[in-house]
């Protein structure tokens, strides 16, 4: 399988592939986001208990799911980067981390905005909220570390190592926080136990989750393309690419 996969890790091929996938992914993400949001925010019935304010679930849940999904894919990229020394995988870490961090912020923000009318407070020291916050700190650590070195290569490798350490720690953090929460307070969440969701609300939610995943993939392709160009700027194929695109823009303007 690796023999088959290996050529795709070549920066030039990967750049082409990302360029090929990006428009499709972005279009699909945009369409499904539109469907999911309009259906979820305007056409689903209101919740019998939470009224209209539950509709934020269509943003909150996809962002929360993909904030963790982005971290997992980052950790997989980190493993590939460290074990097989694939450079493109190192760049992928730097490409995914800020997107994942923004998803985490979206999940936290929408969660707080949802918590205010439902729980009467912006923030509860609940297990899920706390581990999401810690996830944000882990993302920020990876981003800060990758930018802290004069040598870009060292930064990429160090952040790969940190992402792996983080992924080993993530379950430990998750369970310890859950355990800590159930020791001190348990009632906060059980009072607002989720009613098993109705199909009319589930479908737009699933579409939104799909949309956020596609969006993540599309943005990763875009950022990875930029990262490849930045890191390979001394290579002939990049120079050729730049000079040919310059030429064509000159022709258009002329």
């Amino acid at each position: 399988m690796f023999k088959w996969l290996d050529p795709y890790a070549k920066p030039e091929t990967l750049y082409r592939l990302c360029g090929l996938w990006f428009p499709w992914l972005m279009t699909a993400a945009f369409i499904s986001l539109l469907i999911g949001m309009v259906w979820g925010l305007a056409f689903t019935p209101a919740d019998y208990q939470q009224g209209d304010s539950y509709r934020i679930i269509h943003i909150h849940v996809p962002a929360a799911i993909w904030s963790m999904g982005a971290y997992s894919s980052m950790a997989i990229a980190a493993l590939i980067a460290l074990v097989w020394q694939v450079k493109a995988a190192q760049w992928a870490i730097g490409a995914i981390a800020p997107i994942g961090a923004v998803f985490t912020v979206i999940a936290l923000f929408t969660g707080a905005a949802w918590g205010k009318p439902m729980w009467g407070t912006w923030w509860v020291w609940d297990a899920r909220l706390t581990s999401e916050l810690i996830l944000l700190f882990l993302y920020l650590g990876v981003i800060a570390l990758s930018g802290a070195f004069a040598d870009r290569q060292t930064g990429a490798k160090a952040s790969a190592l940190l992402a792996l350490v983080g992924v080993v720690n993530l379950p430990i953090i998750h369970f310890s926080v859950e355990w800590w929460n159930t020791l001190h307070q348990g009632a906060t969440i059980t009072k607002f136990a989720k009613p098993s969701i109705d199909a009319s609300m589930l479908w737009p939610l699933l579409i939104s989750i799909l949309a956020f995943g596609l969006w993540l993939a599309a943005l990763t392709c875009l950022r990875l393309k930029t990262a490849i160009l930045q890191n390979e700027q001394h290579r002939p194929w990049v120079r050729q690419l730049v000079s040919s695109s310059l030429k064509s823009s000159v022709i258009k303007e002329g």
Binding site: I134, F137, L138, L140, G141, A144, L145, L162, V165, G166, N169, I172, I173, S176, V177
Partner: peptide, 10 residues
């Protein structure tokens, strides 16, 4: 500190 403090939480 930024890298290691989150890992100290458990």
């Amino acid at each position: 500190a930024l890298l290691i403090l989150p890992l100290y939480i458990p």
